[in-house]
């Protein structure tokens, strides 16, 4: 019998879930996804890891613990590099070791993904490693990988057409072609790691709040990689984190975009890359000085009231800016 494979709803899940899910389904593996982040998961994660670990890794620990008694195996890839001459964050590179030694967990399935040397480093290696471990045959692996990659491509297209991950992978799974969604109204760019931008529980439902305020939200993943890379070329030196490259590039791109009336950088307390990329973005926004920019740092102790006050102030600034804009044009 094939093992039940657990997937933590954290970190890379927010980026690669459609790819993994479609592949595992294809080779006939039963998967179990940890529930959405909630109080219990958060508490378990915080209790399990040291205080100076970034919030997203603590959240991930909570999800891993939630899988503990339900699955035979946990899929937790070791992402070393997603693109040539670039890296992931050191904590993601070491994640399987970090959690394996500090939490008691079922065996981990941690294939290495390392494109540092070649952009076309074959994904088939990961697929084969996973297939071998769960007892799937070669033909099934090849077929499923092809289908998964196709599904993932549809997913990315949907993102770029203005969908958010959840709706995009539902649509991609159903084989839907993107029907472009133009932003309805003024746009606020919400820049940060997918796992902080989309996990409502840890960001006080920022996305929902902005939409309720009558704004359209656009995120870093919705900018095509090539566009982001072109915009990031304005940096004084090639940024060696792929995720940071996308975030900075997307931010620079949105700063130039008409209809974008504000930008929020969502950072995590204790995040190394955010401390650098967030600063680069904030400086650029300030130097440009055209639209309001807000840096929000999420942490488990952040007083909700404090964050909301700052958000309110930001929204007021955006509103004032829009009014002025109308006056100028009028």
């Amino acid at each position: 019998m094939k093992p039940v494979v657990g997937i933590p709803r954290a970190l890379l899940y927010w980026q690669y879930f459609p790819l993994w899910q479609s592949f595992l389904e294809g080779i006939g593996v039963e998967t179990y996804l940890s529930p959405p982040t909630g109080r219990q998961i958060l508490q378990d994660g915080l209790a399990a890891l040291g205080t100076d670990v970034c919030l997203p890794v603590k959240v991930a620990a909570g999800h891993l613990l939630a899988l503990r008694d339900r699955v035979d195996l946990i899929l937790l890839p070791r992402l070393v590099s997603a693109a040539r001459r670039e890296y992931a964050c050191p904590k993601l590179m070491g994640l399987p070791d970090l959690v394996r030694h500090s939490l008691s967990l079922p065996p981990l399935l941690s294939p290495v993904i390392d494109r540092y040397r070649h952009d076309n480093w074959p994904l088939i290696r990961v697929a084969l490693a996973v297939g071998r471990r769960v007892g799937a045959g070669l033909p099934a692996v090849l077929r499923s990988l092809a289908r998964a990659v196709e599904c993932y491509r549809r997913y990315l297209n949907l993102l770029q057409a203005g969908y958010f991950p959840q709706e995009a992978w539902e649509a991609a799974g159903a084989g839907q072609a993107p029907d472009p969604r133009a932003p309805a109204g003024d746009v606020v760019a919400l820049i940060g790691h997918p796992y902080t931008v989309y996990d409502r529980e840890i960001n006080l439902n920022l996305l929902g709040r902005l939409e309720r305020a009558g704004l359209s939200v656009r995120t870093a993943e919705q900018v095509p990689e090539a566009t982001a890379r072109r915009a990031a070329a304005a940096l004084p030196k090639h940024l060696f984190w792929t995720a940071g490259q996308q975030a900075v590039g997307a931010a620079f791109h949105y700063l130039e975009q008409e209809g974008v009336v504000g930008m929020i950088s969502v950072m995590s307390f204790g995040c190394g890359p955010d401390s650098m990329t967030g600063d680069l973005i904030a400086r650029r926004a300030r130097r440009g000085g055209i639209i309001p920019h807000l840096s929000l740092t999420l942490d488990e102790h952040a007083a909700e009231a404090g964050v909301l006050t700052r958000l309110e102030a930001f929204l007021d600034m955006v509103a004032a800016q829009r009014e002025r804009g109308v006056v100028v044009c009028g």
Partner: peptide, 28 residues
Amino acid sequence: FTCMPEIVAQHVLPSVSRDLGIPVLTLV
């Protein structure tokens, strides 16, 4: 504080300590 490679190491060291019977103190 927040040093990424060392945080990974910090969480691995308890196993080293247990296996080799050597006490480890981490100072952030």
